[in-house]
Design a binder for these strands. Structure first.
Lengths: 184, 184
DNA sequence: TTATAATTTCAGGAAATACTGAAAATACAG
DNA sequence: CTGTATTTTCAGTATTTCCTGAAATTATAA
């Protein structure tokens, strides 16, 4: 059975799941797999969490769609086993990529379409101006995420540790014209 | 009535709302206010979206709890009017702050507690090691967000435009010992 | 193949969430 | 104050989402 430590974590992620657009089952399955030292099969998961076999099956399918768990086989056992990626940075990256694909991209595409429509009156002109602001903000932040995703974990870590002191670097960059586009 | 442009945007945000932990009503109210050129009162909102007065009232309350809309009064009118902040960067900042307060902080606090417990066996030791990894990742990324939040929109924008070229800057920073802690 | 183990699908019931209208509370003009 | 306009609360209902067990499908060992 689950240790009290694991159980608390699992219950917490069940609740949090709803805020991330997945249900309690999915959150709990993920949490259990994240903590587990070895891969688990669907029966083990169902038993540990008290869910029906079919519920576990659906939950695992969703987690696979999110690329948050991967399927593997144990030698001499024909059941499917599941595990989460080991590297938490990789998990973080996957999560932001999926969020982007599911939420950000559809929104961007709606905004782009809306901005192509000719405005009929002042109200629409104003609405479009607002949409343009949102569009530009989203495009800038996601574009940045895209680039930063490609950095190695170590570089990323350095950047994070740098924090707000990055301001100093930016000033320096301007003076030294490192930003790619030459500064006037 | 809503223009087709506004309507599409509003419906989209209604759907997206659910993914952000708010319901359709709340998402639509926010979207309507975001696009509106002037503040709206609850009756106007309810009529535009086809929601009951009480539903609008609850939705506005929630949006205020998120600090995503603010209340104001029109001279000579005793009804309450609502608007969204104008600056999209400010909106973005508010959103991340609230998300942090509601999701990240409770998780961090759970992890901290769990890490203080003495491990009973290897399984628990492994679980704690995983929790430590998650804890450190979250603490690092949110600590970084905290600092970056304090930057001016202009600085932030420069940082974003820099994107992955930030690597070059980091190398330079190490050479010049700008990172705050002196490099060995 | 065939038999059986394992997984998935899905209709229907259970649970959770959202929404409404009526009533209560609050705010404010006169 | 008093009366009225405005907002909020909340119990009940509608809607949506979740979860299960049985049946169907798929995979694999013999």
């Amino acid at each position: 059975m689950m240790s009290p430590l694991t159980e608390r974590f699992v219950l917490h992620f069940g609740e949090m799941g709803s805020r991330w657009g997945v249900n309690r089952t999915v959150g709990q399955i993920y949490a259990l797999l994240f903590l587990s030292a070895e891969p688990l099969n669907a029966d083990e998961i169902g038993e540990a969490l008290g869910f029906s076999r079919s519920n576990v099956s659906m939950g695992l399918k969703e987690l696979q769609a999110w690329r948050l768990v991967r399927l593997l086989h144990q030698p001499g056992d024909r059941r499917e086993y599941f595990e989460t990626p080991k590297d938490v940075w990789e998990i973080f990256r996957t999560l932001t990529e999926e969020k982007r694909r599911r939420e950000v991209e559809p929104t961007l595409s709606l905004l782009r379409d809306a901005l192509l429509e000719p405005a009929q009156d002042d109200t629409e002109r104003h609405a479009q101006a607002r949409m343009r602001e949102m569009h530009d903000l989203i495009e800038m932040t996601t574009g940045w995420f895209d680039e930063v995703h490609r950095l190695s974990p170590e570089t990323l870590q350095k950047l994070m540790q740098l924090g707000a002191r990055v301001t100093k670097l930016l000033e320096m960059a301007e003076r030294l014209r490192i930003g790619g586009k030459e500064v006037k």
